[in-house]
């Protein structure tokens, strides 16, 4: 074994660690480009606005509801400058997939955002239920969804497939938890980071 000094061995270990981790990170980053396609029915705001936000949510997650309320106020204050699109990242919460299916079916009737707002507003209630289906149906009635079309849509297996595909795509972007946002392509996780990121565009006002 060639004689090497302890300091040289230390340096060697550090360099190897940096190269291995850097290499693996680079390898994964090649495949993480950012959100691609936009689903128009789940988008709102000005497409030409200065800020484009893609939001990955699970409707059952409390912080997602807080984030949604914050974004709603933020968009009201900056109506022409923000474009928001929403994507599903349903976790293992008992109502996560069902709430996303209802929301997607509402989107197919052009009423995604009113339904979304009710989901967020009443989250603290429906997330307690063992069966949230009646609560979602009530919300569907409240936003005047066509209930027969809704029933057919809920039975459509392609809806669940689409929701799971969005989650798979999100995972390939490095998303592991909700809420995660992409603000003009930059990933931010959680409401605190979102506020900090948006403050960079519009100064210190905290909504």
């Amino acid at each position: 074994m060639p004689k090497i000094s302890k300091k040289f061995a230390t340096l060697l270990v550090i360099v190897i660690c940096v190269f291995v981790i850097g290499g693996v990170k680079l390898f994964f980053q090649v495949f993480r480009l950012g959100p691609d396609d936009t689903i128009a029915a789940r988008a709102k705001g000005n497409p030409e606005g200065a800020i484009r936000i893609t939001e990955y949510v699970d409707f059952q997650c409390r912080n997602c509801a807080r984030g949604a309320r914050y974004l709603s106020r933020f968009m009201n204050d900056h109506p022409d400058q923000v474009y928001l699109e929403l994507k599903f990242f349903s976790t293992s919460g008992r109502h996560s997939l069902l709430s996303a299916r209802f929301a997607e079916c509402a989107a197919r009737q052009g009423k995604f955002w009113p339904f979304h707002d009710l989901l967020v507003q009443r989250q603290h209630r429906w997330k307690q239920f063992s069966d949230a289906h009646p609560a979602f149906e009530q919300m569907a009635k409240d936003v005047d969804l066509d209930l027969s079309r809704l029933e057919k849509c809920l039975e459509d297996k392609s809806i669940a497939k689409l929701i799971l595909k969005e989650k798979t795509d999100a995972k390939s972007l490095g998303i592991k938890r909700t809420p995660t946002y992409f603000v003009n392509g930059k990933m931010v996780v959680g409401l605190k980071s979102l506020k900090q990121e948006l403050q960079q565009y519009f100064g210190g006002s905290d909504h």
Partner: peptide, 9 residues
């Protein structure tokens, strides 16, 4: 190897 934002959260 994950985006650092996950740990930041």
């Amino acid at each position: 190897i994950e985006p650092y934002q996950n740990f930041l959260y």
